Computed example of a mutant assay.
Amino acid sequence: MVFMKVSFKAALAATLVVMVGCSSSPTGRKQFAVLPDSQMDTMGVESFAEMKKETPASPNATLRKHVQCVADTLIAVLPNKYRNQEWEVVLFDDEQVNAFALPGYKVGVYTGLLKVAENQSQLAAVVGHELAHVIARHGNERVSTQFATSQALALGYQLSGEDSPEKIVIFQALGIGVQVGIILPFSRTHESEADLLGLEYMAKAGFDPRESVQLWRNMSTWTNSKTPELLSTHPSHSTRIDDLEDNMSPNLATYNALVAQNKQAKCY
């Protein structure tokens, strides 16, 4: 039993050592992303193609133009590598309150989101958040982390001796521990990082960053998740609002400077 525990800890520790410092996100956070970005792009393009087959685009030309304008205005302030790509933006005719961006420069917005994002700036808060996931390579990081932790568990299992009911129970518990202790915190970190990067993008693009807070107040009335934050892939609405407000001042100054020059976003 001691050998099993030591073997697992050694394998997991080796994985975590590799996970520290392989690359950095736009905020300077150390991250672990081992897949080639070209492979992630291919996966994103293929996934988006399947989504377009399964869900029709909205027939509402006015709404499509609005969403495209918001996305284009945000894309125009992204780092060069991303600003100069040919992004595809689709408004899907679906009532779910959601949006996403995928590697391969694909953006999807669902019509249901427009019932919660009540103006251009609130929509920009969501789209900016989703663009940030791509720019920060969160998809690559999630896939890489899940692969590394699963391999560590598999190695520990193989080195721990013969199968037994006790061994199976222990490794099931370890699997839950990895999920709660590594995978979920990484996901919550990604969400918080995307919130703050999205806040920066929307302010630079001339959208009112204060509307990001109102968006999450709107969200809190539409969704009523009772999942504890510890076991959730997303921070709570209140945590997100607090983080946005804590980082509001410099972004509001950026926005106000654009307003003074009459350069605010105009996607009405």
Rank of each mutant, 00 (worst) to 15 (best):
M1Q: 13
F3K: 13
F3E: 14
T15N: 11
C22R: 13
C22G: 12
T27R: 14
T27M: 14
Q39K: 10
T42I: 11
M43R: 00
V45T: 11
V45Q: 10
S47D: 12
T55I: 15
P56Q: 07
T62I: 13
T62L: 12
A71E: 02
I75Q: 00
P79C: 09
N80T: 15
V90L: 04
D93N: 14
Q96S: 15
V97H: 01
V97E: 06
A101Y: 00
T111K: 06
Q120G: 09
L123I: 07
A124F: 01
A124L: 03
V126G: 02
V127G: 00
G128K: 00
L131K: 00
A132K: 01
H133D: 09
I135Q: 06
A136Q: 05
V143K: 02
S144T: 06
T145Q: 03
T145K: 00
A148T: 09
T149M: 13
L153G: 06
L153Q: 10
Q158M: 15
S160A: 15
S164K: 04
E166Y: 10
K167L: 08
K167M: 09
I176P: 05
V178D: 04
V180T: 14
V180G: 08
G181K: 02
G181P: 01
L197N: 01
K204L: 12
K204A: 14
S212I: 06
S212P: 03
W216N: 05
N218A: 11
T221K: 12
S225K: 08
T227Y: 07
H237M: 13
D242A: 15
P250W: 07
L252G: 08
Y255H: 06
N256Y: 06
L258V: 09
Q261H: 08
K266T: 15
Y268Q: 14
